[in-house]
Nucleic acid binder design. Structure first.
Length: 312
DNA sequence: AACCAATGCAACCGCCTGAGG
DNA sequence: TCCTCAGGCGGTTGCATTGGT
């Protein structure tokens, strides 16, 4: 965003003692860039004093790191990056700077904004807490597979994924009967993230943690050295559910139209009537009350608009 | 065309941590 | 051990932009 057109929210040019606040001007950016190019990063308070900028050191640092630094990547987050954010957030929570370390060119601020504007928005739509296991499972069972779907589609991105077994049919895993289903520890990653996809990621390990589950193997333009391996997923909350309910939920997710597998398109209103409310569905499941289980989902699918429809 | 609400994002705030004296 | 300060981090705010009516 160009700051030159923005007006300063406070202070005036002739108020020389006052620190400037608000959007940065082109002149300020130029001053900062010139100073850093000659003296390097760091010692931000000194920089603020010596550069002629009437900004706090913190403000200078932030402007540099989030906007002016040459390797800052701009533009929309790729599906790969979104997937990585979701994955790493499930591992580390709101450790934005730590997450950002694994997305070259992306800043913690940008990732934080992405989370708040995109991910939390969905939680509001569902009227559930982003910290809830329900929401985490929606992400893993729906959003992340949709991103994988996008990644699989050619020419949607300059970056490519290498994921073994990713082309395996979506339903191959969850078609296991409850008896056949792997134990929760084994399901971790596959039972929650893809529930059907074995995402055996092979990533260089920065943290020397064992790479035990789905790890994303990024190639091409994304430097894999930045990607830490992802540790074990927590067991799916659905592991505790009545098997039939879990199975039914997975079926519902699977029948979603792959061509439009977008979190944004997930419309709980369009889910089969008895399961229109996710929370009640979950609670009913836990209480043993059947919900979708009584609903014949065969032949039902998500249409191109992400709306639930039945074939008859 | 005008208004309003929602959205996205840059920037700020306040707290925490670690280094140095 | 305590104090001070710079830098880092996560949370929050403010405003320009966008989309709908």
């Amino acid at each position: 965003m160009s700051t030159s057109s923005k007006s300063l929210s406070s202070s005036s040019e002739d108020d020389s003692d006052q620190l400037r606040r608000g959007p940065w001007t082109v002149e300020e950016d130029t001053l900062l860039i010139n100073y850093v190019s000659h003296h390097g990063e760091g010692r931000w308070n000194l920089l603020a004093k010596c550069s002629g900028l009437r900004r706090t050191g913190k403000s200078c640092r932030l402007r540099w790191l989030n906007y002016l630094k040459p390797d800052v990547k701009r533009g929309n987050l790729s599906p790969q990056e979104q997937l990585l954010i979701l994955e790493l957030h499930s591992k580390w929570g709101n450790r934005w700077s730590k997450i950002a370390q694994h997305l070259p060119g992306r800043t913690d601020n940008e990732i934080k904004n992405y989370w708040r504007t995109r991910v939390q928005k969905q939680a509001r739509v569902f009227k559930i807490d982003t910290d809830s296991t329900i929401f985490h499972d929606i992400i893993r069972s729906y959003w992340m597979p949709s991103l994988f779907q996008k990644i699989e589609e050619p020419s949607t991105s300059g970056m490519e994924f290498q994921h073994s077994e990713i082309s395996q049919p979506l339903d191959s895993a969850h078609r296991h009967s409850a008896a056949e289903a792997p134990a929760p520890a084994q399901v971790a990653g596959q039972g929650t993230l893809g529930f059907s996809q074995s995402l055996d990621l092979h990533v260089q390990n920065q943290d020397s943690e064992p790479c035990t589950s789905s790890c994303i193997s990024l190639s091409k333009s994304m430097d894999t050295s930045y990607i830490s391996q992802v540790s074990e997923y927590p067991a799916s909350p659905f592991d505790a559910m009545v098997n039939n309910e879990y199975e039914t939920f997975l079926r519902a997710c699977y029948y979603a139209d792959n061509s439009n597998f977008e979190m944004e398109n997930l419309n709980l209103e369009s889910i089969p009537p008895a399961a229109g409310n996710f929370e009640s569905f979950i609670s009913n499941s836990h209480s043993g009350e059947r919900n979708w289980g009584d609903h014949d989902l065969s032949g039902s699918l998500w249409n191109m608009d992400g709306l639930w429809q039945t074939s008859n």
